[in-house]
Design a protein around this nucleic acid. Structure first.
Length: 423
RNA sequence: GGAGAGUUGGCAGAGUGGUCGAUUGCGGCAGUCUUGAAAACUGUUGUCUGUAACAGGACCUGGGGUUCGAAUCCCUAACUCUCCGCCA
């Protein structure tokens, strides 16, 4: 969430930023500032009223103690009057605050200055590409056919047990999942991340903290009897660990990693591009999260990007890195790098990681701050990235590493799988 | 699920209607002493809002109420603990 003080002092910058993100309702900025003006006036009135009231109440206390009841009674008349005023003033103030909040939560984060202009995914800028795109042998198959051929992932069985988008992993397929999870966790640990195993359900406060709520409820599974949500990503619980926390400056950066299943309703997506592992309702992901000093967050993002690159290279997958354009970035992000691996049988790039700096957007919602050298509390920056999401990695591995004899497991992963070929 | 007790500043823990934003201890920070450290002693130490700076306002788990006045009384929600029941 943007800070009202910042908007007040930088209205033009805010408008330009919102425009870059292709936010439609930019006039709301002026509306907001108007309301803010009114609210501040209302606040002064309310507080002056309260100040007089407090003063008189104190005086009544003193008079009562001194036994001067008649004078105390005479003052009471005025306090009753003030109380009436207070009720109205407070109501008005509350109403203005609500209106301001309701506008404020609709504003996305402002994009960083290096984010490219653009509206659609086509306008994302490829900043790095690495790896050979494999030439597949005659009769090569897409991953869903390979999954059936080697009996490692069963989509039909998942349909029966739960529904579409909930595959069942079997035998070497299940073992491969476990191997990737452990591999990713170990690599992150080596890079200095602290392992966390968080709850898989979150409350509404946590959903608000990282920006899933309000408005994006539709993307999460909601357990209504207990009013809890299944996590769409480990980012939510792991970042919210620091909700309402004041950190010491020297504690930063905090680097956490966690493996969790992720649950997404993916309402509204369908078609050929969701076949097989391309888009699931439940999938596994290892997520890295940093809580950083504002001065360190840019370097933190670079480090995260390099970490993800290292993973893809060890898995021997061709990949490219995109810097998302303003219009294609997520709501809360200030800058996002997407990683895509090339899926040779589908002949298309698949997103396997999204690594972002949220700057103060989440920390302002979560009230996560650090105490600076000057003793003042300031908002931290939050960052997160997938390192990595499994299904599309598995999809590309199956497709790209297939041979007529079977599917080769990359060297780095063999110690984790315990086999070097799926056949 | 049933019965009871509780939730106060980083932590522990006082405070049952007025001068309490809150006693005290620990911890933290600064100083004295010391070659340095420890100990001891002294001082200091919550957050938000607001102001040029003061002032002012809000916060004792959240929400609502009673009252001129609420940490304190009432209602309600959440959470924690103890006992019983159930259970991986």
């Amino acid at each position: 969430m943007l800070q009202i003080n910042f908007i007040r002092e930088n209205a033009d910058t805010v408008k330009a930023g919102l425009a870059k993100k292709h936010f439609k309702n930019i006039v709301a900025v002026d509306e907001l500032l108007q309301l803010d003006e009114e609210k501040r006036k209302a606040q002064v009135e309310t507080e002056n009223n309260a100040a007089e009231s407090n003063q008189l109440a104190k005086k009544i206390g003193e008079l009562m103690k001194a036994g001067n009841k008649t004078e105390a009674e005479s003052i009471k008349a005025r306090t009753v009057e003030l109380k009436e005023n207070a009720k109205q003033l407070e109501e008005r103030l509350k109403q203005l605050e609500t209106e301001i909040f309701n506008i404020l939560v609709t504003f996305p984060n402002l994009p960083s200055s290096v984010v490219p202009e653009g509206k659609t995914p086509e306008e994302n800028v490829t900043v790095f590409t690495k790896g050979e795109i494999p030439v597949l042998h005659e009769g090569a198959m897409p991953h869903w056919e390979l999954a059936a051929k080697y009996n490692i992932i069963d989509f039909e069985l998942g349909n029966k047990i739960t529904g579409a988008g909930f595959p069942v992993y079997k035998g070497k397929g299940a073992r491969l999942q476990r191997a990737l999870i452990n591999f990713f966790l170990d690599e992150a640990t080596k890079a200095g991340y602290h392992e966390i195993m968080p709850p898989l359900m979150i409350n509404a406060d946590s959903g608000f903290g990282t920006g899933q709520l309000p408005d994006k409820e539709g993307q999460m599974y909601h357990v209504t009897v207990d009013d809890l949500y299944l996590i769409p990503t480990a980012e939510v619980p792991i970042t919210n660990l620091y909700r309402d926390v004041i950190l010491k400056e020297e504690e930063l950066p905090i680097k956490n990693v966690g493996y969790t299943p992720c649950f997404r309703r993916e309402a509204g997506s369908y078609g050929a591009h969701v076949r097989g592992l391309n888009r699931l309702h439940q999938f596994d992901k290892v997520e890295i999260v940093q809580i950083a000093h504002p001065n360190q967050s840019a370097a933190g993002l670079d480090e995260m990007v390099m970490h993800v690159q290292g993973l893809l290279e060890k898995l021997e997958l061709p990949y490219r890195i995109l810097c998302l354009c303003g219009g294609d970035m997520s709501f809360g992000s200030a800058i996002t790098y997407d990683f895509e691996t090339y899926s040779a049988a589908q002949e298309r790039w698949l997103e396997v990681s999204s690594t972002s700096n949220f700057e103060t957007f989440q920390s302002n919602r979560m009230k996560c701050r650090y105490k600076g050298a000057d003793g003042k509390n300031q908002l931290v920056h939050t960052l997160n990235g997938s390192a990595l999401a499994l299904p599309r990695i598995v999809a590309t591995m199956l497709e790209n590493h297939q041979t007529p004899e079977g599917i080769k497991i990359p060297k780095a992963l063999v110690p984790y799988t315990g086999f070097d070929m799926i056949n």
